[in-house]
């Protein structure tokens, strides 16, 4: 019942919009059909939440004439999504919401023949820093104590994270290398499962994104020890960064919108304006703050340059993971 009513209102609204030529980009390119909003992860994960949040902001404020339709393609650690973009038939109506498998998957699965530099940069919505967490019951309160403990346990210290070659394993491999730690690493499907097993003390430490650990941090179960960001994080002002400890390393999850390779310049401009609007909306600004994402605005050229450095960094980091 409610559907028909909604559809009716929607159709009426659309008809009115079509009749009145007062849209933001009246003369420019406009999407002609629903926009395929490909997500590099399965439903429910961090990337999925962000994509659906963005969609909801655009929807709520009527920012697009055609809807963004979320399309989860998490298979093969995002390989499925990258191929969907590379082989997109309708290049002007296909977008991707990324995380760092945007860099790692093409590097690890060379057979895919995906070169991310061919993709069209649209918008950098923010970057998600990583934080080192332990359970409050462990009694560990500082990073130095963590290092000491991990060394003392000599290979029996258990850390959990996402699958091999993915973000968590990269951060942990760097940490282990920098401090000469032998850790036991247990790979999980996603950040939620990792947080759950830290809460249940099945594992001893994690490098979850703040959003994934937030509930348990607020309840006092998780203790943050170290941030892998460039500067101290606003939401955790007392947590030191790895840079302060003398290691030139920071690591973020890229939350970006990317267009299909070969997207027309007009379409790309339309989406850049659209996502700039989303970015500036009070909803998104509130989300950045509540989920502890860091803003990192950059234009198309800067994004490409950023991708170059990231690809180079990831190539080196993945070698460490494979050890």
């Amino acid at each position: 019942m409610i559907i028909t009513k909604r559809t009716f209102i929607g159709a009426a609204a659309a008809a009115m919009l079509a009749a009145l030529p007062i849209s933001a980009s009246a003369q420019g390119w406009e999407p002609r059909r629903p926009i395929d909003f490909v997500i590099m992860a399965g439903p429910g994960g961090g990337a999925d939440q962000i994509a659906r949040f963005i969609q909801s902001v655009a929807e709520k404020n009527d920012m697009t004439s055609r809807p963004l339709v979320p399309n989860n393609k998490g298979g093969g650690s995002g390989a499925e999504a990258l191929l969907a973009l590379k082989d997109a038939r309708d290049k002007d109506h296909t977008l991707l919401v990324t995380l760092n498998s945007f860099f790692t998957t093409p590097l690890r699965q060379e057979g895919l023949g995906v070169d991310v530099q061919e993709f069209t940069p649209i918008a950098m919505m923010g970057v998600d820093p990583f934080v080192l967490w332990v359970h409050a019951d462990s009694g560990i309160t500082t990073f130095e104590q963590f290092v000491e403990e991990a060394k003392a346990m000599d290979g029996e210290f258990v850390m959990g994270g996402t699958g091999k070659g993915q973000e968590d394993s990269i951060v942990i491999a760097y940490l282990a290398g920098a401090y000469g730690l032998t850790l036991k690493y247990i790979p999980y499907d996603g950040g939620g499962a990792v947080a759950k097993d830290l809460a249940g003390k099945q594992i001893m430490a994690t490098v979850n994104n703040p959003a994934e650990a937030k509930g348990f941090y607020e309840s006092g179960d998780f203790v943050p020890l170290l941030a892998f960001s460039d500067e101290r994080m606003e939401s955790f002002p007392d947590v030191p960064t790895l840079k302060e400890k003398g290691h030139d390393f920071s690591y973020y999850n890229q939350r970006a919108i990317v267009g299909a390779p070969g997207m027309s310049e007009e379409a790309a401009e339309y989406y850049r304006t659209l996502f700039a609007q989303v970015y500036d909306s009070p909803e998104w600004q509130g989300y950045l703050e509540s989920e502890s994402l860091s803003p990192m605005p950059m234009n198309a050229e800067e994004t490409r340059a950023y991708w170059d450095t990231q690809l180079q960094n990831h190539r080196d980091l993945l070698q460490q993971v494979d050890g």
Binding site: P43, G44, R52, F53, S56, E218, S219, S290
Partner: peptide
């Protein structure tokens, strides 16, 4: 999987799911 989407919804509505 369904509750995963519900969870996403709660974040969108501005609630913090978790022990609190």
């Amino acid at each position: 999987p369904t509750t995963a989407i519900l969870l996403g919804g709660m974040v969108i509505w501005g609630l913090v799911p978790g022990p609190r």
